[in-house]
Amino acid sequence: MLLTVARIGRAHGLRGEVALDVRTDAPDERFVVGARFVTEPASAGPLEVVRVRTAQGRWYVTFAQAADRTAVEALRGVDLLVDTDEDEDDEDGWYQHELVGLRVEHVADGRVLGEVVGLEHLPAHDLLVVREPDGARTLVPFVEAIVPVVDVPGGRVVLDPPGGLLAADAEHLVVSDETRGDAVEG
């Protein structure tokens, strides 16, 4: 199976260098001179890395097939793919195809909160895209404090969401008379 490890971003300079939107936990292993990538769309590749550098946390590469700014500008938005058969298993890392379709359960009582329908990549951390039973799509920070259990073989993820994160939480709030202000002494 082919998985995205980066998306090609803006051209950088005039000599064919391009910024990458990295989607892998091991960019220093993926983006090396001589690495070849299948692309999506397929017509843009394959692409071979001839130069790599990092600056201020960003990855920049030059491809043999795109030697100038005009050529790399045409590659903007192209995904770089690798074959997962070459990857080793990572017990604390999951691919989007492994997460999509998993049942989402609440840590406290096991009630079903929805289904994972996607994964968004952000610089700070990834976000699970959860479709709740009412159809609402909620972005859940994919961090251990909020997603303590990912059980791919069991077909589920368990959430410990902060109050108000999910629409389903509003249905389970119990409001006492004292918190509503109904009890007035006087």
Rank of each mutant, 00 (worst) to 15 (best):
G45V: 01
G114S: 01
E120K: 09
D92K: 05
D90I: 04
V38A: 12
G154H: 08
V82N: 01
A170C: 02
H106D: 14
L119V: 15
A35V: 02
L75R: 07
G13V: 11
L14T: 02
D68C: 01
V50T: 14
A6T: 01
V117I: 15
V107A: 15
V49E: 03
E73K: 11
A44N: 01
A35H: 05
V32M: 00
G155F: 15
L128I: 05
Q96E: 15
R69E: 13
V18C: 10
R103P: 02
D79E: 15
A124E: 15
L47A: 06
G13N: 10
V38R: 13
R69I: 00
R23D: 00
G57V: 00
A19F: 07
R69V: 09
P161F: 10
R51Q: 14
V157H: 04
G9R: 09
E178W: 08
V158P: 04
D83V: 02
P161L: 11
A55I: 01
E73Q: 13
L122T: 00
A108L: 15
D126A: 12
A6I: 08
T179Y: 05
G163A: 02
A170H: 03
V175P: 00
D87T: 03
G118N: 10
T84R: 11
H172V: 01
R53N: 12
G110L: 09
R76S: 10
G13Y: 12
T84D: 14
E88F: 04
A64I: 06
L75W: 07
V104S: 09
Y60V: 02
A35S: 14
E91Q: 08
G101L: 00
V140H: 14
R180V: 00
V18R: 09
V38Q: 08
A55P: 03
V82F: 05
L122Y: 12
L128P: 06
G101Y: 03
R103F: 01
E120W: 07
A67E: 14
G164S: 00
R10V: 07
G118Y: 14
R76M: 13
D28F: 08
A35C: 04
V38G: 00
L81I: 06
A167Q: 05
L173V: 06
I146N: 05
P141G: 03
V184Q: 03
L128D: 06
Q96W: 03
L80D: 06
T39R: 11
W59S: 06
D25S: 07
V149W: 09
D89Q: 03
Q96S: 07
A26P: 03
L99G: 01
L139Q: 09
V158W: 12
A26E: 01
G163H: 05
V140E: 14
V116D: 08
H12D: 11
D160V: 02
A64W: 07
L2Q: 11
H172Y: 12
V149N: 10
D68G: 05
V33P: 04
L14G: 06
A19I: 00
E120F: 13
P161Q: 06
V5A: 09
G118F: 09
D160K: 07
G101R: 04
R58S: 14
E120S: 13
T179A: 12
V22M: 05
D28A: 12
R53Y: 14
D21S: 15
F31M: 03
V157A: 12
G45P: 02
A66D: 08
L113M: 10
Q96Y: 00
A170F: 09
A167H: 04
D79Y: 09
L47F: 05
E29H: 08
E88Q: 06
A6Q: 01
V117K: 08
A74W: 02
Q56P: 00
G164H: 02
R7Q: 13
R7E: 12
